[in-house]
Design a protein around this nucleic acid. Structure first.
Lengths: 210, 210
DNA sequence: TTCGTTTTGATTGCATGCAATATAGTCCTT
DNA sequence: AAGGACTATATTGCATGCAATCAAAACGAA
């Protein structure tokens, strides 16, 4: 059993991402503390962290609410992702990641494709986040991961895969494979282009549905 | 008198930016609370916030330390700035800011040039941060400000102007004026280019000295 | 002396109680 | 009945005490 703050953080985070705590709903400290069997202090700290993650908004003397996303928010997020992630991919390719990192990325692709064939979209989303996180980390820029968490963990982003049809899903998987290939080849321009296409495809999908 | 947490946040932040709390030094909760005449709770919350701002690093059961910047950190930061700020400038130009915003930016340029002629570099740094923040806000992307705080408030960044000679200083001021002109003209490519030059000039300066 | 162990001191992590503030409901005035 | 001031309740903000954990000094064995 780790720290109570982390327990609270993970729990509330999961509530938000899974939709249990719906957008706009209040997150009372006392109520959450009761539910989780903790005191208000670690809950409060967790809400603060979620606030800086951009998952909840905390107003002075008014508590925390789950943030509500608009189409504008999505546009903003995808603009930033299509700026930062291609950069991260290019950097990662330039660094020529060691073989074990490449193997790990391939492994993640395998797992994802298995999850797709099993129709487990929740797991696909989870693995996708992990894949992008790995790639961002491979960029070597130690500030990028923290910067991107605020735009990567939006509930609607995480749930993107539910909207994909078979063609879009297979295209997305191919993008991932191609990214690893570009990294293995050490070709920054290739990696950057694939990533940009990957992000813009996702943006187009969300734009079409919503 | 606002909230105690804010008081603590501002105080510690100022300690770090002014150099009173030197890089690598420990920030004990009890000690700070004593100094500021508060309890540990708001101090702790402030340190947490400063942690997500990237100004301090908090380790489990080991407390908070002022982060130490390496040349690598500076490179990383300037790479991200030269990616995001030109984008922000382009977006701002595309949005064609209202006249009062442009007036405000001009006013900030005036104040900055006065501060330069008075040799008040602390004030120059402060006004420069404000100018960049205004421009980033004018981009219309509501996520950019929070994203960039983590890379804008590094102590070494804030202190950049102390290193500038007369030519570099005047070039920097000219960049600011030119940025406002590009915004007024509604020319995204112009604004983007000037901002990129502005950032890279700053990076070159820091690279040369350090 | 040097390495590993133990103990001690200090500091963070968490729980709880009280004070400050906001929201909602009630009452009074017009 | 409508509007505004006031009161009541619920919730956050802050202080403080205790428990858990870590770093370092003291100790003992090789």
């Amino acid at each position: 059993m780790g720290r109570a703050t982390d327990t609270a953080y993970d729990a509330v985070r999961q509530m938000i991402l899974s939709g249990t705590a719906e957008a706009g709903s209040r997150l009372g400290e006392a109520e959450l503390a009761e539910t989780l069997g903790l005191s208000r202090t670690p809950v409060r700290e967790a809400l603060q962290r979620l606030g800086s993650d951009g998952l909840v908004e905390v107003l002075p003397h008014r508590g925390a609410r789950v943030v509500q996303w608009t189409r504008e928010d999505l546009e903003e997020i995808f603009e930033l992702r299509s700026l930062l992630e291609p950069y991260a991919a290019a950097r990662a390719a330039k660094l020529a990641p060691p073989q074990n990192v490449l193997d790990d990325l391939h492994e993640q692709c395998d797992a994802m494709e298995r999850a797709v064939s099993e129709g487990d979209f929740g797991r696909v989303a989870q693995l996708n986040s992990a894949f992008h996180a790995s790639l961002i980390e491979a960029s070597g820029n130690r500030r990028l991961p923290a910067m991107l968490t605020s735009v990567m963990h939006a509930p609607l982003i995480v749930g993107t895969f539910r909207r994909y049809d078979a063609d879009e899903m297979s295209r997305s998987m191919n993008h991932h494979r191609e990214l690893v290939a570009a990294l293995a080849a050490g070709d920054p321009a290739w990696a950057e282009s694939v990533m940009r296409a990957h992000i813009r495809a996702a943006a187009a999908n969300l734009r079409g549905e919503r």
